[in-house]
Design a protein around this nucleic acid. Structure first.
Lengths: 355, 355
DNA sequence: CTGAAAGCGCTTACAG
DNA sequence: CTGAAAGCGCTTACAG
């Protein structure tokens, strides 16, 4: 039971080394090239030979070494995730979703948190995809929206999927989250409850998601003859604190808004906080709608009506699509799934407008 | 500007392939073995030769291919993180901390969320460390506490670091979070504020962290002549909801507790919620202390007094220690950093006891 | 349908 | 202090 700290000596006293392609070839009485054909699902192997080899592979528990395969293929069996979204729940759900889509594929997930305003951002990203010769990489907003990133991707030739709220690339490289649709849903909900004086708290204006959520919200209001006046729009930063301050400001307007739509849950929770501190009641005096349906939306009181973004599912779709891209031959992969749909989740923070 | 979806053809029209060790050797007029010595910091290279080679390496921007090195070394340049803690902020901070410690090392971080109650847990974990021949792996609670995991680790021979609240392995493989100390700090704080009737909400009893937090809390109370009676102890599950229900129960006790210590922030936020719903005020009627200092602690009103665990720093220490382990020769690495200290953060959810 | 040779980019013994 | 040979475990042309 002695442990061994010397890296070169990996196996225990038994010396039971992992079987290699040579072992399989010897046992099957074929060349290793034929075994390789079976591993790589080449159609040019006699059915009988294939079955025999597969039986032996299963018997001795052989699994091809991704490093050796990678060296020969000039690419690894690693899939990268590059992100700069600061929300932990978004990040974790995205990772879980990608792992869902990668299960059984033999790929492993390597993570790369980054920061677009860092001067080494691009150099770091390039090294990330180049050094270990990633099989592919998924990018989430707002890193996914960066044009310099796209340039590096094409230059290095790494397969990639960009997740964004609008198409910023050809369909083969995109998963679209349709935040505009979510914004419309929020507006529809509030309008149907009879609200006419409505406030909006945006996220950082540099974020497409924020622009889209606002755009959809305004469009739908307009379509219903309602107007989002400038004094009823505040600019937050997707944080709880900015939610508090922006909402506090909105509550000073005359007439006071009877509903507030915040571009994410964090700010919506802040807005709720501001409403309570102002001595008002939610939803009786002010209805509040958030966006994302992260945990905070159900942890506050009253729980927030919000727009759910299927983050985990998005991650799964991205990984599946990326794997298809990465393992595709010359022919472009099938028209894979391409967009996700946000959905309104009605909870207790919204109610009918009171005069 | 045409993009190319065929993986084998990586580089653009320029055909500018990455330089290899052979290029460096040719340019330097030495054998590639000598270049290899320089890369691996062998002392057996003439100073002049080394400088010349390093100059050429920098000039042509050579960086050794980790896959090829890995194949020869029989191990990759990947470091794994295996975790089953469901808190997104913990996970993200741990990843960020590890990345802090890995920066510039040439290693990449690959993640493995897992679930101890899954029947394939051990098999999956084994495949995770074995398939890509991880250079090392870090485990966090409660996965880190699993004896089966330790057995696999020793069998495969992968270097590892286990993060836990108590020593469950030799010092070379541990980072200890000393949750007992944090529990004591919470007790000291409440005792000094004059509280004598105190409630406790534990986490899952299977978690060492929960046991330790409670242990330290009780020890310190006892040392001060205070007692934690059974009726004032409730068992939660580290979730907001269980915090609500456990606190609601505690508030029914006679005499009613004037303070509650919850074993994590999530439950403390739930307790706060229960206090407010019971028509009581925090901290006037009931003081509340949490544990972790995650974002939720500052997002509620009043912001929670809590015990801060330095998650990110812990991740950095673990990665640094692991890299030392992985690159060590036969000799055991220096006695590296070994434990972290929790610290009380006083905010507005605690105040003097009122009779 | 199958195989012998050469190679992916590096390293480990073994010499000198 | 330095190098030629063999090898890590797989794959890609090229033959047949």
């Amino acid at each position: 039971m002695a442990s061994d700290e010397n890296p070169p000596l990996r196996r225990g006293p038994g010396g039971d080394k992992k079987p290699t392609i040579n072992d399989v070839a010897r046992l099957a009485g074929v060349s290793k090239k034929t075994v390789s054909r079976v591993i790589n699902q080449s159609p040019f192997v006699k059915e009988e030979t294939r079955e025999n080899i597969n039986r032996i592979i299963a018997e001795i528990g052989f699994s091809p070494d991704p490093q050796a395969r990678g060296l020969a293929f000039r690419r690894s069996f690693l899939i990268g995730l590059a992100y700069d979204n600061p929300n932990p729940q978004y990040v974790v759900n995205m990772q879980l979703g990608m792992l869902d889509g990668m299960r059984g594929s033999g790929y492993e997930l390597v993570v790369h948190p980054c920061n677009r305003s860092n001067p080494t951002f691009i150099a770091d990203f390039r090294r990330f995809i180049e050094r270990q010769r990633l099989a592919g990489v998924v990018l989430t907003p707002s890193a996914s929206e960066d044009d310099r990133v796209k340039a590096v991707l094409h230059e290095v030739g790494t397969p990639y999927i960009r997740i964004a709220s609008v198409p910023v690339d050809d369909a083969a490289h995109m998963i679209i989250s349709n935040d505009r649709v979510g914004g419309r849903a929020a507006a529809r909900h509030l309008a149907e409850l009879g609200h006419t004086v409505i406030g909006f708290i945006s996220g950082p204006t540099s974020f497409r998601s924020s622009q889209e959520r606002r755009g959809g919200f305004e469009d739908e209001l307009k379509a219903r003859g309602l107007d989002l006046a400038d004094e009823y729009v505040m600019h937050g930063a997707y944080t709880f604190e900015t939610g508090v301050s922006c909402a506090a400001e909105l509550l000073k307007r005359t007439p006071r808004p009877t509903a507030i739509f915040a571009a994410n849950d964090e700010m919506a929770a802040g807005a709720l906080h501001a409403v309570v501190r102002a001595g008002l009641k939610c939803p009786d005096d002010v209805s509040i709608v958030g966006y994302d349906d992260f945990q905070i939306a159900s942890s506050v009181w009253p729980p927030l009506t919000t727009v759910r973004t299927p983050t985990r599912e998005t991650g799964r779709m991205a990984a599946e699509k990326l794997i298809a891209l990465a393992s595709a031959g010359a022919e472009p992969p099938q028209q894979a799934a391409y967009e996700t749909s946000p959905a309104l989740v009605v909870r207790e923070s919204t109610g009918p407008a009171r005069r």
